[in-house]
Amino acid sequence: MSVALPAADITRALMRISHEILERNSGSQSLVLLGIPTRGVHLAQRIASNIATIESATVPLGTLDITLHRDDLRMQPPRALMPTNIPSVGIDGRDVVLIDDVLFSGRTIRAALDALGEIGRPKSVQLAVLVDRGHRQLPIRPDFVGKNLPTSLTQSIKVHLMEMDGCDEVLLESQGGAS
């Protein structure tokens, strides 16, 4: 097991992503940030507070659970649903930024796009992830990436965040525990 991204790097990456989101959208007026449970929610909160510091503006922040839109529901036992909170401003005509911890096959994001379609019609949808590990199975790409981490399919990525796990780190684990 090796540390791919230590705490300080995570903080820097999130700060950079916050700046990039503001740059791309020329400010924060039209933004809505949606975190995908569970860890994407905490990342979205951090990005929102970064933006509040940079622009002294509050960005509408919400969560989007995609469980009911997954394409692999029938392959696993039933999953517990996580909360979905759409900010009161809605998403119609807004620039929505989806935020998740790891981008892998792209299937979660496909499900998220389906879920968004049922809530409203955003002006644009952008994707911010802390780690892009490759191996996409769908034509989906991120707009903002904390770190590109080329992996093999036998490896796994573990993201730990202070809010849930007591520390900030991204770990790269090889099968069998050897690193």
Binding site: L68, L73, R74, M75, Q76, P77, P78, R79, A80, L81
Partner: peptide, 17 residues
């Protein structure tokens, strides 16, 4: 309906996985 039908049914499944 979601908890009974959406997922894979195993021999001894639990509602919380």
């Amino acid at each position: 309906l979601y908890l009974l039908l959406a997922g894979l049914q195993e021999e001894e499944p639990s509602v919380n996985s």
